[in-house]
Amino acid sequence: MPHTLSNPDDLHDPTGYGYSHLAATTGDLVFVAGQYGSDHDGHVVSDDFAAQVDRAFANLGVALRAAGLDYRHVARLGTYVVDHDADRLTVLLDRITRIWGDTPPAQTLLGVATLALPGMLFEVDAVAAR
């Protein structure tokens, strides 16, 4: 499937980590790489789980807008939570409800022991449809 890879200027440059933020097909699909609570330099912004979730979803929004889309276009989410528990699930559910209301996208949540960088507690990737 032909596709175009891109990295929005408003997000950190991920190429040093071995990936691109967006892969858009010539058809209707846009794949957004895992977004985490990162600043413009790729550093984790906080050690607070809720703050990381907020920033990760904000970064997801930046990536979507760079592709001419928004949260309404998201068909599927992959969410990854370090040390998953009921409190973290409550935070995640609150943020998803704020963004998508009563019609959230399909989602797979994985509880994991660790993520790519020290201090990362949450990551979200997405598939969006034009």
Rank of each mutant, 00 (worst) to 15 (best):
D28A: 14
L110T: 12
V81L: 05
P118C: 11
F31Q: 10
V30Q: 07
Y71I: 02
R130G: 12
V30R: 08
V112H: 08
G42Y: 11
A86C: 05
R95Y: 10
A113G: 12
D13N: 15
R88Y: 04
V82G: 07
W100H: 14
S6W: 00
H12R: 08
M1L: 13
G34Q: 13
D83P: 02
G42S: 07
T25P: 01
L109D: 11
Y36E: 13
S38N: 09
G68I: 10
V62I: 14
T79S: 13
F57T: 08
V53A: 13
H40T: 14
T26D: 13
F57L: 15
Y71N: 09
T108M: 13
G27I: 00
A24Y: 04
R95C: 02
G101P: 10
S6I: 00
T103M: 10
A23E: 11
A33W: 05
H84I: 12
T90K: 14
V81C: 01
L60G: 11
L89E: 15
L92G: 09
Y71H: 14
H73W: 01
T97Y: 11
S38Q: 09
D13S: 00
A113W: 11
G42L: 04
V32F: 00
A23Y: 03
F122G: 05
L109F: 07
H43E: 14
Y71V: 04
A128H: 02
R55D: 05
G61F: 06
V74A: 09
Y36Q: 14
V112I: 05
F122H: 06
A128I: 02
A23P: 00
G34S: 11
R76C: 07
L69K: 07
T114M: 04
V112A: 07
T15G: 01
A33E: 12
D70L: 06
V53F: 08
G111W: 07
L5V: 11
F49I: 04
L117H: 12
T103S: 13
M120F: 03
A58N: 08
D13Y: 05
G37Q: 09
D48T: 01
R88S: 00
D102Q: 11
D85H: 11
T90Q: 13
T108V: 15
N7G: 02
T26I: 06
G34D: 15
S20M: 06
L77I: 03
T4G: 10
R130P: 01
A58I: 10
T97M: 00
Y80R: 15
L121I: 03
L117G: 04
